[in-house]
Design a protein around this nucleic acid. Sequence first.
DNA 1: GATGAATGAGATTTCATTCAT
DNA 2: GATGAATGAAATCTCATTCAT
Lengths: 197, 197, 197, 197
Amino acid sequence: MAESLAINGIDDSPRGRLLSAAAHLFRDKGFDRTTVRDIAAAVGIQSGSIFHHFKTKEDILYAVMEEVIHFNTARLQQAVASEATAAGKLRALIRAELQSIVGDTAEAMTVMVTEWRCLSEDKQRKALALRSIYEQLWLDSLSELHQQGVMKTDPFILRRLLTGMIGWTPNWFDREGPVSLDDLADIMLARVIGEAP
Amino acid sequence: MAESLAINGIDDSPRGRLLSAAAHLFRDKGFDRTTVRDIAAAVGIQSGSIFHHFKTKEDILYAVMEEVIHFNTARLQQAVASEATAAGKLRALIRAELQSIVGDTAEAMTVMVTEWRCLSEDKQRKALALRSIYEQLWLDSLSELHQQGVMKTDPFILRRLLTGMIGWTPNWFDREGPVSLDDLADIMLARVIGEAP
Amino acid sequence: MAESLAINGIDDSPRGRLLSAAAHLFRDKGFDRTTVRDIAAAVGIQSGSIFHHFKTKEDILYAVMEEVIHFNTARLQQAVASEATAAGKLRALIRAELQSIVGDTAEAMTVMVTEWRCLSEDKQRKALALRSIYEQLWLDSLSELHQQGVMKTDPFILRRLLTGMIGWTPNWFDREGPVSLDDLADIMLARVIGEAP
Amino acid sequence: MAESLAINGIDDSPRGRLLSAAAHLFRDKGFDRTTVRDIAAAVGIQSGSIFHHFKTKEDILYAVMEEVIHFNTARLQQAVASEATAAGKLRALIRAELQSIVGDTAEAMTVMVTEWRCLSEDKQRKALALRSIYEQLWLDSLSELHQQGVMKTDPFILRRLLTGMIGWTPNWFDREGPVSLDDLADIMLARVIGEAP
DNA sequence: GATGAATGAGATTTCATTCAT
DNA sequence: GATGAATGAAATCTCATTCAT
């Protein structure tokens, strides 16, 4: 999965193609409005055959989220590891999450946010547990800067503001436009460490 | 509607009660997972009677959005009118939108964001047209600050970042917690006009 | 009713306007596809008010048929009375039924044929009883010709063939076309008394 | 379909049984008063399963008509081909259409006439196009007789009179009665080519 | 593993009819 | 007599899931 950088961070097996198609459809039409037949048609099989790979439609949604969490947690860990300074780490985190959310794993990430509610409570808990490593990387980085006195605002709140800013990006960002993802990462970083606005 | 500050900015007529119940259910379970029977039960009528007030289930969703757009556009206009300085206006806008989104119209506002896709393209266009006045108030305020040299970042991008920050708030903000909405407005304002972080 | 030669043989009272509107709609869309609201809208009242005039929707259908049977039975009696010879009487009957079916009572007559099945068995029996006078006029006329040796075919069968020919006319006859109703009556008469074809 | 002379000209597949049951019910109760559940029950499946075979209830009606048009067009073509003289051809056409309408395809033929209006305009056009071959066989035959001087009346009008006579037959003809379909064909033929009445 | 017909629960919507005002 | 909101039964259609082949 991680080694073949396929779309949505999913490998090119039959199961992987199914997940990719599902992620795409879930983002476009939403989980509830995507039928099992839609997904089957998108990968060229019959609807009944889906259930050889997943027990329920909801399991497909969960698997999409699981894959994208694993993939992006690994990406965040690499991002943090590759930087020496606290500010550098934070910028790398922002850049990496932007990449996740408007780049290669855009569909699956969007699905994770918008279709979260379609997960049963049980699966929500399981997915949250997977997410915790991911979130801890952010809090560690922000806490370090806070302790260094770089900013005064509570790291928890700042993470929430960043989540909002980054999460909303796919709704407006234009990859062909004048502002690059690197520019945008800098702009967002400035909202936190407060360089001249 | 404006004079009786009922929940979600909707008045207390039969139609209004129906819309309030719908907004509540749509936020809790999503549009697709809320049945017409659910809504009817919530206001104590039979499901068939709904269609005396609205032709389709989707019309109910649209009506919720229409009401909340009108109500909050009026609120934003008051917010801007009540402040003299550009920075004061921006803070008032942030505070008002926070109020919309975690306060009295929280349900309807959340629905507008999360269930937008459930609107037909036709209705999406109509709702967008209504929204345009609302958005123009923001862009006017940010552009004024930009021209005054208060910040260098593009007003359009800053509005998007604020939309993300504010829009994400209901997912974490605790009205009983230590941070008030006024505090939060100040914190967000600082992300834009860049006082000491 | 008979004295004011209103459309469909129905007078111009509130009840009459309602029946005329119903006949028109029943012919256009069929009984099942015409709603009580449609009828109400056509006469400019509310749907609930219909039930001050008729107990059920089916009663409206029955009333339409009852009126048209009475009206056209009277017309047939006049037609027979005004002719001296047996052949003259038959031609007058054909001409009168053509008039009923493509002329002034076209809508109600068509409804009687096409929506017959929508009547309860009870009302079908009642309507059939009303029809019997009407049909007897035909059989008397044909039997007289048969006894005179004008034609050999069973009068009962000939009446059925005429019913089919005349009843199908509204599906193709063009009142603006080159063939008049009088021409058509002659053509049909020739099918029975067998002048040179 | 043509080789297995099943009822209504429909073969004995699952789809065929469904169409036969539908034709039967549509004739008995009318299209609007026949529910999808009725049809399903008649073939021993669940109502939802119907929609595996047909997208909508209306599609079932259209399929009934399509099958019966194809089947009877073939029958008419055979009837014409098997006769040498113009009068023989016309008699064969009358006999064949009587067979369609009171014999093996009686239900579907009746449905085509009585439920025509229940077809969307789009499907009406498609069905009319299929019918055109059928009608041309009639007009060709009648025109030939007309040119031979056998009768003077317009072939188009005569076809309409025959359509009416034949189409009304199922409403009164008794297969157990003293008059056979052959007798009836002769009686009808005489209405056109005018042998002694 | 794949197929695809069948299931059956449940969704939205329609509409004749009622009845308090 | 008129209104029009409400009823509630019933209709069509959807779709995740199963299972014999």
